[in-house]
Design a protein around this nucleic acid. Structure first.
Length: 118
DNA sequence: AACCTGACTTCGG
DNA sequence: TCCGAAGCCAGGT
């Protein structure tokens, strides 16, 4: 196991909660796990745990909405898995994060709204 | 035991 | 806006 730090535990939990058909960025996950500057560590965890654990690793992309993983190292597979989930790629190779980016706040099942008095 | 290396981002100038 | 530096930290050399 690669580090059972609190950060890594949170990271795994967060990744597991990304809904099918949605994607999240490394930095976003890092921030949600408590350290906005540990994006690289998120990547590292994915690399070491994607095998052993059954993580939806394909749902993590970089901040541009692109796949960071080298095509021959699994990036190609990642793109296919995402397409099977309904995620579409633009010509630029980017995923529209506005459309497919996951945010708990935009998830109807998890969202809440605080009435703002004027 | 240093030093290098990443599936990355944020920071400061 | 743009670019280099800094932060992250476990594994491999």
């Amino acid at each position: 196991m690669s580090g059972r730090t609190l950060f890594s535990i949170r990271t795994v939990t967060i990744i597991n909660s990304i809904p099918k058909g949605k994607v999240a960025t490394y930095g976003q996950i890092a921030a949600m796990a408590g350290n906005a500057r540990a994006a690289r560590q998120v990547a590292r965890l994915l690399n070491t745990l994607s095998g052993p654990e059954s993580l939806p690793w394909q749902r993590v992309v970089n901040r541009e909405g692109k796949i960071s993983l080298d095509p021959v190292a699994g990036g190609d597979l990642q793109a296919r898995l995402l397409e099977l989930e309904g995620v579409q790629f633009q010509e630029s190779g980017c995923i529209d994060l506005i459309k497919y980016g996951w945010s708990p706040m935009t998830n109807p099942m998890e969202s809440y709204r605080i009435p703002i008095a004027t």
